[in-house]
């Protein structure tokens, strides 16, 4: 199965052309390619302000071989709902331009964690609640990278960012991450999932499912940022897998309210393995900060335990 799917994906052409200005090793660059090759639906993309938007659309060039719109920073979701409503209204009146691909059109909104967890949360929530048929994909690189690595509510505890710096008395970000995936799920929409481009078959399967369901879907996707994390570009795919294997970024989906882990590591690796590859955590490995490392590991363990429990419980309930 996987090989056939891969073959199909490889034959789909490049929806995002090379030559854009994203950094080497940028996770988001991988995500947008995987997201658009996951299906062959005719797809419209609405992109929030941020690295992906800026790096792929510098006039007179564009990397996008699909219809694409950038409106503002906080309104990628609202923007796509306008396009989706227009599609429905225009389809009814026969006003949609003719196309070769007769499959129904699909709508994707794309934003970084800043544009999604923070400034775009209201727009996202409204769009999910209104039930538009679209998929929101958040590439979560854990900070406002485009403006120079400022903290967001997705930045992990302890991370050194330019607005939560590691200093003499404060050791990086003091707050935990916001659980945006849970917030999206609380909208009771048909499909919510986490994903990582390190597990690309899982990711592309989720993109396909998200596009196929009728109504809104939300995907929270782990995105490595070598510049902001001070990691090596060649470590990006390693990090995209190690985040999952350490359970820092568990892979799960919630389909019609039913929770399911989509990946369980055989061996759960220690978080330090993941953190050591990133300069944004280097201060935590200094003497005196052992408590913070312990705290991070305990938090990851506790969250993973909860997810395991939930997965087990729902499996039992659904197998009855």
């Amino acid at each position: 199965m996987p090989s056939a799917a891969l073959l199909e994906i490889a034959s789909r052409g490049e929806p995002v052309a090379g030559g854009h200005r994203l950094c080497s090793g940028c996770g988001a660059g991988v995500i947008i390619r995987q997201m658009l090759t996951a299906t062959d639906y005719p797809t419209v993309v609405s992109n929030a302000t941020g690295c992906v938007e800026v790096c792929t659309s510098v006039y007179p060039f564009t990397a996008w071989n699909v219809p694409w719109i950038h409106n503002g920073f906080e309104n990628a979701a609202a923007t796509i709902t306008g396009a989706e409503a227009a599609y429905r209204a225009m389809e009814r009146r026969g006003d949609v331009p003719k196309r070769k691909n007769k499959k129904p059109m699909k709508f994707i909104a794309l934003g970084g964690d800043g544009g999604t967890y923070d400034i775009g949360l209201q727009s996202l929530s409204g769009a999910l609640e209104r039930g538009h048929d679209f998929v929101y994909i958040c590439y979560d690189n854990g900070a406002y990278m485009n403006t120079g690595i400022q903290r967001s509510s997705a930045s992990p505890f302890g991370a050194n960012t330019t607005t939560s710096p590691a200093g003499v008395v404060i050791q990086g970000k003091q707050e935990e991450r916001k659980n945006l995936t849970a917030i999206a799920a609380a909208h009771d929409i048909p499909f919510v999932a986490t994903a990582s481009p390190g597990y690309y078959m899982d990711f592309t399967r989720k993109v396909k499912k998200a596009l196929d369901v009728n109504g809104p879907a939300f995907l929270n996707v782990f995105a490595v940022c070598p510049l902001g994390w001070r990691s090596e570009p060649e470590d990006s795919q390693i990090l995209a897998r190690s985040s999952v294997e350490t359970c820092v970024w568990p892979l799960y989906e919630i389909e019609d309210g039913r929770f399911r882990l989509t990946f369980r590591p055989n061996v759960k690796r220690p978080v330090t393995e993941y953190m050591q590859l990133q300069g944004r955590f280097s201060h935590l490995f200094k003497t005196g900060n052992e408590d913070m490392l312990t705290h991070i590991q305990e938090r990851v363990d506790a969250e993973w335990e909860q997810l395991l429990k939930r997965d087990r419980r729902e499996r039992e309930e659904n197998s009855e």
């Binding site: 419209v44 609405s46 719109i69 409106n71 503002g72 906080e74 309104n75 979701a77 609202a78 923007t79 796509i80 709902t81 306008g82 396009a83 989706e84 409503a85 227009a86 599609y87 209204a89 225009m90 006003d95 331009p97 209201q122 727009s123 929530s125 409204g126 769009a127 609640e129 209104r130």
Partner: peptide, 19 residues
């Protein structure tokens, strides 16, 4: 919409769609 900011944003999305 849930705000005027989103209302105008949706207008832009719809307008760009050709509506």
């Amino acid at each position: 919409c849930e705000s005027e900011h989103s209302a105008m944003s949706a207008c832009v999305g719809a307008g760009a769609a050709g509506a």
